[in-house]
Write a protein that binds this DNA or RNA. Structure first.
Ligand SMILES: [Zn+2]
Ligand SMILES: [Zn+2]
Ligand SMILES: [Zn+2]
Ligand SMILES: [Zn+2]
Lengths: 165, 165
DNA sequence: AATGATATGTTATAATGTAACAATTTACAG
DNA sequence: CTGTAAATTGTTACATTATAACATATCATT
């Protein structure tokens, strides 16, 4: 049985993003409580800042905002929080952009396949078993055992493709 | 009809790497001549340094070697050469490592799927149409049109898996 | 040889990320 | 409670990766 879940859809026109964010924050809180780890103020705030949009957010942009709120913030403040959030599955790093996106599904530990729109910058996350299975097979043909996959796909999202028409 | 070409195999025990490198350099020279672009001394030397092994090479490691040979070298020297080599398809960047690997097939323009061994650091490049087709299909289901793919797979290569046994 | 295009030299700086250690806060056992 | 260890945050410094901007040199063509 295979699965093709879309974890973070592209923003539809006028989608209520406030809800995306609130939902993600709520899930994060529940997840942390269940795991006995602490979603401290800093971590929570960084997660909020990552979720401000569906575009990948840069560490130093997060830092700039933190510094507006609390001058004691420094690079380690942000990177530590991001490390925590990645470990707990609430944030993924987009390697090809040196930027971070929120994940709405921290309970099912995974790293998905990212679709990144060259026009609007929005990112969608798929978590597709067919892709995973095919790659495992192809790698296996070379005797390679997969630990982790970085799959970042650049292109044009549906909304932007429509607008171009 | 689909294709699963292995462009850069994992190094077999005692494989004659000198030949990998010479072959890549020869192809590069021919390709540049055919395209009317110039494989200058710097570019050629950077390509050689990328091909010193099958492990991804860092820009500043290349720079250090260039500086041994010519003190006038600076970061732009390396990054310009790498840009040229990437544009001409002779080098690929591994985004998740900020490092560069040689490609032996600059004529068939592509960016492949990389298998990166966590143990020996070697990288193999696949260029697999099945993977490309499946990803295009899955992305297409979301209305997404693919321009470019970054696929970097971490794991254990066949040689290292055998040694572990 | 003159010319424009390409490539390289040079300096400075931007952007991204980490090491190391001190201070503070939290959890919790006694 | 209160002392203690662990976890978190503060702070400073630095390492790594990459680019901007402009000067100089080289190459290709006339
Ligand atoms: Zn949203
Ligand atoms: Zn995810
Ligand atoms: Zn070789
Ligand atoms: Zn290649």
């Amino acid at each position: 049985m295979s699965e093709n879940r879309v974890l973070v859809p592209f923003k539809e026109n006028g989608h209520a993003h406030q809800r995306c964010m609130e939902s993600a924050l709520t899930v994060a809180e529940q997840t942390c409580r269940a795991r006995g780890v602490r979603l401290t103020n800093i971590r929570r705030r960084v997660l909020e800042l990552v979720w401000r949009s569906h575009e990948p957010v840069k560490a130093y942009d997060i830092l700039a905002r933190l510094q507006d709120e609390h001058s004691g913030s420094a690079p380690p403040t942000v990177y530590r929080a991001l490390d925590f959030l990645q470990t707990e599955g609430m944030v993924h790093k987009i390697e090809s952009l040196n930027a971070y996106v929120g994940c709405g599904d921290p309970n099912h530990m995974h790293i998905g396949q990212f679709l990144i729109c060259r026009d609007c910058g929005a990112v969608a996350e798929m978590d597709d078993d067919d892709v995973r299975i095919l790659l495992a097979e192809k790698a296996g043909n070379l005797g390679f055992q997969i630990d982790r996959e970085v799959i970042e796909i650049k292109g044009l999202c549906a909304v932007c493709a429509t607008e171009k028409r």
